[in-house]
Design a protein around this nucleic acid. Structure first.
Lengths: 163, 163
DNA sequence: TGCAATTCATCAGTACACTGACGATTATCG
DNA sequence: CGATAATCGTCAGTGTACTGATGAATTGCA
């Protein structure tokens, strides 16, 4: 059957399988964390804001590899849920200064088990010995392909404050 | 630095890395195939329609693991580009019967090198010996987690035409 | 045969991702 | 200093993904 071969060729392409795994991973997170009403993306932003108080949106993007345009909506939703605060930048009035609220910190603490079980479920089909291998390869693929996404992770800015 | 540890914990989570790899893979496809004006999703749909003439939208979804709601827009865009035709189903008037056009077949043939180079680029950071291992694990993760996405691949319908 | 359950495509609503563009602001350098 | 370049957040537009709902059509079964 030519059509079955064609299907297989398509369905076994890295790009196709990666898309599917992303969908699965996203769905597992929503399911495990449904009591908390945040998405994986919102969770990542919240954690990063929590560990970088006063960060601006573009710097946040460079840490978690979000698109600069997308982040606006994400932090807007976090703000609406009162998990973060967004103030105008003090030094640079182009920026918005992001900081986590006590409610945000509480959510991070409470959601932790759900986050952990999500990661466990994603890798559950692999044998224990394979999981490390897979994660190393995944990390490798992401980091060496970093430059290919619009939102590459950038190294700590070399503040040319050579004073 | 607590904040750097926090960042690492987040940035090395399977879910986070999978999201990023998906973004990278998508961007690589668009870049390699930019002369053809189709997305990875549209390409997958086109190939599947090409090998299953007259298929309806829901059956198409079950092959390539799309969401039933999403496919409407995708095939609409393919139709607008005259790569497929969408007719009302003959036997079942609820369905739309999808078929590829000559232009669609031509595009599939011409885009092939770009598709191949995309898949090569995605896996390029791995050593040749690792690529098979990674693909096997990826396949395993997707198939054994299949039920967790909204759009699971379904086996050939058991047309209870036990006749 | 007739009605309830199911299925197909689609809709409205929400969220993420990216392109290209913009005004406002800040940085750089002649 | 002052003009130019770069950066920040945002906007409009497009595309993918999913929830929950609906009307139309088909199926299953009493």
């Amino acid at each position: 059957m030519a059509r079955l071969d064609d299907d297989r060729r398509l369905l076994e392409m890295p790009g196709h399988l990666i898309r599917r795994l992303h969908q699965i991973s996203f769905a597992l997170f929503l399911d495990q964390a449904k009591a908390f009403g945040v998405t994986p993306v919102q969770y990542a932003a919240l954690v990063a804001i929590g560990s970088h108080p006063g960060i601006d949106q573009t710097a946040l993007c460079s840490i978690i590899a979000f698109d600069r345009t997308t982040i606006g909506g994400v932090v807007g939703r976090l703000e609406k849920k009162k998990l973060i605060k967004r103030l105008n930048g003090a030094h640079d009035r182009r920026t918005k200064s992001l900081s986590i609220t006590p409610a945000g910190r509480t959510l991070i603490r409470r959601i932790e088990p759900a986050v952990q079980s999500t990661q466990r479920l994603i890798l559950a089909p692999l044998k224990a010995s394979e999981r490390n291998t897979f994660m190393q390869m995944l990390w490798h693929l992401v980091h060496l392909n970093n430059a290919h996404s619009r939102a590459p992770v950038r190294e700590r800015e070399r503040k040319r404050r050579t004073s």
